[in-house]
Design a protein around this nucleic acid. Structure first.
Length: 825
DNA sequence: ACTAGAGTATTTTTT
DNA sequence: ATACTCTAGT
C-alpha cells in the first residue's frame, strides 16, 4: 500500500530517537499548533507567521507519530496552487512523493472525488461532466428563453450569479428565501433554479457549487455512508478557514462532527511522545476504527485576511469556531518572519481600525539595519504614478535588486495597463499574474468541447458549442431543430443528430454537413480506446478543420491561438487518457508562468494573497478606487472593513520596502476625475510612515501641458502628515468637487485628447538602451519575421538593446520588448 | 450567414 | 474611452 510507504518513510525521516528534526525549527506557538493533535484546534495565523509550515509539519507529525495513514487525513485548501504547495512541502518533510495522500486537495477536487464514488445517490452517473461558468451561463440562457422570458431583461449572467450565491450558502431551490425567489423574472426565480438543476441532471452534469452541495445532500440522506467517512478521516485540516463559505462550512461540519460516543473513548496518549510513536503505529490492513470521539479538526486562517466576502466567504465561520467546536484549542501565531518592524507597525495600526476582529498583533524580533519606513507618494495622475514607480524600480534595479522580488499590487485590473505601457517603453520586464486564463480562451474551450463530445457524446453544451465551428452551414435553424427535439424526447442532441441524418427533415445541404459531423465524431469515438490520446486530440483538431480555421484566419491573434492549441496538446502528455485530462482541466484552470525571466510582478491585491516580495508598490490609494466605491455602496461598513483587510494584505506582502501611491486625477470610464487620498492613508501611524519627497528625477519633462504649474516644483508633500500639503489633501476631502489640487481643474479635461501622440518621456530610454545593448546581443536581426502576442506578426525594423522597432502587418510600427517577441519562420 | 453598428457595462476570482 | 455583446440589415 502506497500509503503505508509514506508513513514508513516519515518514520524513517524523523532522524534520531530524540525530538524529530522537523519540530526543532518551530517557535513555541507553532510547535503547539503542530503537536496539539487531539480535539479541535484553531490556528490564527497572521500574515507571514509560518502558516503553511505549521500545516505541513502537522501532517508530517501525524504521519510520523503513526496516528494515521496518509489516506486517513483530509486536508483541504482553496486553490490548486495551495494544494500543490502543501503536497510538495509535506513530501519534503516526509522524504518523498506524497502520492499516498489521496485526500489532500481543494474543496472542489475532494468534492468531485466523493461525488464520483457516490454519483448515483445524487441522481448522476459517475462519469458526470463538470460545467464551467461559460457553459452554465449558456445553459441558463436557454432555460430563461425556454420559459418564454426576455433574456435581455433577465440576463443569464446575473441569474447564474444568483444561483452561485445560493449554492455558496448551501441552498437548494426549496430553501431559498422567498424574497430572493421573487427578485428575479417576476417571481420565477425558484422555478428557474429548479429547472436549471433538473436540466443539469438530464445532462448528467454538475456546476462547481454542486461539487459541494451534492456530497452534503448525500451525507445527510445516508448517515451510514457518512459514518464510513467519519471513520476514515481521523484528522481534518483546513487551510484559509476565513475564506470558507457556508456550503463549505456545512460540508466540513458534517465530516467533522461525528455523533457522540459511538464507542467508549479510549485514553488519549500524549501527543508529544515521539519515542513511543512506533508502538502506536497502525497495523497495515483495513482502516482502523476511530478511537476518538473528539474531532481532530484543525483550521488555519486569519480573520484579518478575509477578502472574499463578495464571493460568499463567511468570516463568521472563523469567528464562531469556538462555539462550533467546544473545547477548541486556539493558538495565535503572531511572530512574523517576513516584514520589517515599520511595515508591520503600519499594517497593524491600519487593521486595528476594523471592529469584530479576533485580535492579533504581529510582531517581529528582527532588527533590520535597513528598516525603512513605509513611504507615501503623491502623483498628479496615473500616468505620472506609473512613471514614478518605473523610476523607483529602475533605481532598485541599478542596486542589483532582482525584478522578481518586486511587485505592483493594484486594486482593480484596469490599473495594470498604465504600468504595462510604461514598462514597455522603459524596457522593463514585467509579468502579469492572474488575468485571462489559459483554459478560458476561446480556442482552448472550443478544442475542449470537441474532446468532451468524443468522451461524452451526451454533452449537449459541447455539441452546441462546436457543431458549427468551424462554419459548416449548420446555423441557428438547424441547431434549434435538433435542440428542441432533444429536449422534447429527453435524448442527447448528438443522438438526435444521428437520427436526423437518416431522414429528410432538413435541407440536403445541412443534412450533408450534419452527416459529416456525426460521422467524424463516431469515428473519433471509435478511436478513443485504441489511439493514444495526444494523437487522437491532434487528429480531432485536424480532421474537424478546427486548426485550418485558425490558419485561414488573418487576424493578429490567430497564430497565438494555434500556439495555444499546440500547448494544449503538449500539456495533455502528462495524463494517461483524454478523460483524465478533461477532469483535470475542469478543476484546474490555471497554467504556469515563466518563472525564469527576471520580471516585475503586476497583479491585483486579491491574487497577491499568500505571496511576498522584498519591495511592494501599492498604487491607487484614492477614495473611490481603494476603498472601492462599489464595495462601500454594496457592502456598507462590512464592505469598508473588507477593503481595509485588503489594504492590510497589501502592506503585509512587503518584506523590506513598501511604497504607497495616490494620484489627484484618474481616468474612470474614460473620464478624467479628480480624486482624493484614501482614508486608509490617514489610518497609518506616523511613526512608521513617511511622506516621500517628489521624485525630482522625472519632474522636469514629459508632462504634457502641465509643466507650467508650480505643483511640479513645489511639492505639497514633504515629510510628514503635519505639513501644509497633507493638510490641504485633508481639506480637499470635504470638498471633492472643487478640488483638483489647486486651480487645475481645466487641465485634466485637456488631457483626454492627448492619447498616444502626446508628448512622452524619451530621455530615460536612451540610457537604458545603451546599457542593455552592450551585454545582450539580440536574438533577432533586422528583417526577421516575428510574432507579438498583442500586435501579431511583423518585421524587425530596428534593434536597440532589448527594445525592437517592428513593422507590424496590422498594427503598424511599434516599439516592443524583445522578450515579448517570438521568431516565426 | 455574415457584418456593421448600436447598445451596454466597467472590482475583486476559485473552482 | 473601450471592449464586448447583441441586433438588425444585407
Amino acid at each position: 500500500m502506497a500509503a503505508g510507504g509514506i508513513a514508513a518513510r516519515a518514520m524513517a525521516a524523523r532522524g534520531g530517537p530524540s525530538t524529530a528534526d522537523y519540530l526543532s525549527g518551530l517557535n513555541p506557538e507553532q510547535r503547539k499548533a503542530v503537536e496539539t493533535l487531539d480535539g479541535p484546534v484553531l490556528v490564527l495565523a497572521g500574515a507571514g507567521t509560518g502558516k503553511t509550515r505549521v500545516l505541513t509539519t502537522r501532517i508530517a507529525h501525524i504521519l510520523a507519530s503513526g496516528r494515521a495513514y496518509p489516506s486517513q487525513i483530509l486536508a483541504v485548501t482553496f486553490t490548486n496552487k495551495a494544494a500543490r504547495e502543501m503536497k510538495e512541502r509535506v513530501g519534503v518533510l516526509v522524504g518523498g512523493a506524497v502520492e499516498g495522500m489521496p485526500w489532500l486537495g481543494t474543496f472542489h477536487s475532494i468534492g468531485v472525488k466523493l461525488l464520483r464514488r457516490h454519483a448515483e445517490l445524487a441522481g448522476l452517473r459517475s462519469d458526470f461532466t463538470i460545467l464551467d461558468t461559460d457553459d452554465v451561463v449558456r445553459l441558463i440562457k436557454q432555460i430563461i428563453q425556454a420559459e418564454g422570458l426576455d433574456d435581455k431583461r433577465w440576463p443569464a449572467k446575473q441569474f447564474s450569479g444568483m444561483i452561485d450565491g445560493w449554492k455558496n450558502k448551501g441552498l437548494l431551490p426549496a430553501d431559498i428565501p422567498e424574497g430572493d425567489a421573487r427578485a428575479f423574472a417576476n417571481g420565477k426565480g425558484r422555478e428557474l433554479y429548479a429547472a436549471y438543476q433538473a436540466r443539469l441532471k438530464t445532462l448528467n452534469a454538475c456546476d462547481f457549487g454542486d461539487l459541494l452541495l451534492h456530497p452534503i445532500a448525500i451525507f445527510r440522506a445516508h448517515p451510514d455512508l457518512l459514518r464510513e467517512y467519519h471513520d476514515r478521516f481521523r484528522y481534518i485540516l483546513v487551510d484559509e478557514y476565513q475564506d470558507t463559505n457556508t456550503a463549505q462550512y456545512l460540508w466540513l461540519r458534517l465530516l467533522a462532527q461525528r455523533p457522540r460516543s459511538r464507542r467508549p473513548t479510549p485514553t488519549h496518549e500524549a501527543a508529544a511522545g515521539f519515542a513511543d510513536a512506533g508502538a502506536r503505529f497502525i497495523p497495515a490492513g483495513e482502516a482502523p476504527i476511530a478511537v476518538d470521539q473528539r474531532v481532530n479538526i484543525c483550521c488555519v486562517g486569519d480573520d484579518d485576511q478575509s477578502i472574499y466576502g463578495w464571493r460568499g466567504a463567511e468570516v463568521d465561520n472563523i469567528l464562531r469556531f469556538e462555539k462550533d467546536f467546544p473545547g477548541a484549542t486556539v493558538i495565535k501565531l503572531e511572530r512574523n518572519y517576513r516584514s520589517t518592524a515599520h511595515i508591520l507597525g503600519a499594517a497593524a495600526h491600519l487593521i486595528a481600525h476594523n471592529e469584530g476582529r479576533l485580535g492579533k498583533t504581529l510582531f517581529t524580533e528582527r532588527t533590520d539595519p535597513e528598516d525603512v519606513k513605509v513611504k507615501v507618494h503623491a502623483a498628479w495622475d496615473s500616468e505620472e504614478e506609473a512613471r514614478a514607480v518605473g523610476e523607483e524600480i529602475e533605481q532598485l534595479q541599478r542596486q542589483k535588486h532582482p525584478l522578481n522580488n518586486m511587485a505592483i499590487l493594484v486594486r482593480a485590473s484596469f490599473q495594470m495597463r498604465e504600468f504595462e505601457d510604461r514598462f514597455v517603453t522603459l524596457g522593463l520586464n514585467y509579468r502579469v499574474i492572474g488575468g485571462p486564463r489559459f483554459y478560458e480562451r476561446q480556442e482552448i474551450r472550443d478544442a475542449m468541447a470537441y474532446f468532451r463530445m468524443v468522451c461524452q457524446p451526451a454533452d449537449d453544451l459541447a455539441f452546441e458549442r462546436i457543431v458549427n465551428v468551424p462554419k459548416r452551414g449548420l446555423g441557428d435553424t438547424t441547431v434549434r431543430l435538433i435542440h428542441d427535439q432533444a429536449r422534447a424526447r429527453d435524448i442527447p442532441m448528438f443522438q438526435i443528430a444521428g437520427e436526423m441524418i437518416e431522414t429528410d427533415e432538413m435541407k440536403p445541404k445541412a443534412r450533408k454537413s450534419l452527416f459529416d459531423v456525426v460521422t467524424m465524431f463516431r469515428r473519433w469515438q471509435g478511436l478513443l480506446e485504441t489511439t493514444p490520446h495526444t494523437e487522437l486530440a491532434e487528429i480531432i483538431l485536424e480532421e474537424s478543420g478546427y486548426t485550418d480555421m485558425w490558419k485561414a484566419d488573418k487576424s493578429a491573434d490567430a497564430p497565438g491561438r494555434l500556439d495555444n492549441l499546440k500547448e494544449l496538446i503538449r500539456s495533455m502528455e502528462s495524463f494517461e487518457s483524454l478523460r483524465g485530462f478533461l477532469e483535470h482541466v475542469s478543476l484546474v484552470m490555471d497554467a504556469e508562468q515563466n518563472e525564469n525571466l527576471d520580471a516585475v510582478n503586476i497583479m491585483t491585491l486579491h491574487s497577491a494573497k499568500g505571496l511576498e516580495f522584498d519591495t511592494v508598490f501599492l498604487p491607487g490609494w484614492e477614495e473611490g478606487l481603494f476603498p472601492h466605491q462599489r464595495s462601500l455602496d454594496e457592502g456598507g461598513r462590512a464592505g469598508l472593513e473588507e477593503e481595509r483587510r485588503l489594504a492590510y494584505v497589501g502592506l503585509t506582502r512587503a518584506k523590506r520596502r513598501c511604497h504607497l501611491w495616490f494620484v489627484s486625477n484618474r481616468r474612470i470610464h474614460g473620464l478624467w476625475q479628480s480624486t482624493i487620498p484614501s482614508r486608509f492613508l490617514d489610518e497609518l501611524p506616523e511613526p512608521h510612515v513617511e511622506v516621500a519627497e517628489t521624485d525630482s528625477s522625472y519632474g522636469g519633462y514629459g508632462r504634457g501641458g502641465y509643466g507650467q504649474s508650480r505643483f511640479d516644483t513645489q511639492d505639497p508633500f514633504t515629510n510628514s502628515y503635519s505639513t501644509p500639503g497633507w493638510k490641504r489633501a485633508q481639506a480637499n476631502r470635504t470638498d471633492a468637487t472643487r478640488t483638483n489640487w489647486g486651480n487645475r481643474s481645466g487641465v485634466s479635461v485637456e488631457r483626454v485628447g492627448y492619447g498616444e501622440s502626446g508628448p512622452r518621456a524619451r530621455t530615460i530610454e536612451g540610457e537604458l538602451i545603451a546599457k542593455s545593448a552592450v551585454d545582450t546581443p539580440s536574438r533577432f536581426a533586422i528583417g526577421d519575421r516575428v510574432f507579438h502576442m498583442k500586435f501579431g506578426n511583423g518585421t524587425v525594423a530596428m534593434i536597440e538593446g532589448n527594445k525592437l522597432t517592428i513593422d507590424f502587418d496590422r498594427a503598424g510600427q511599434k516599439r516592443v520588448l524583445e522578450s515579448f517577441l517570438e521568431a516565426t519562420a
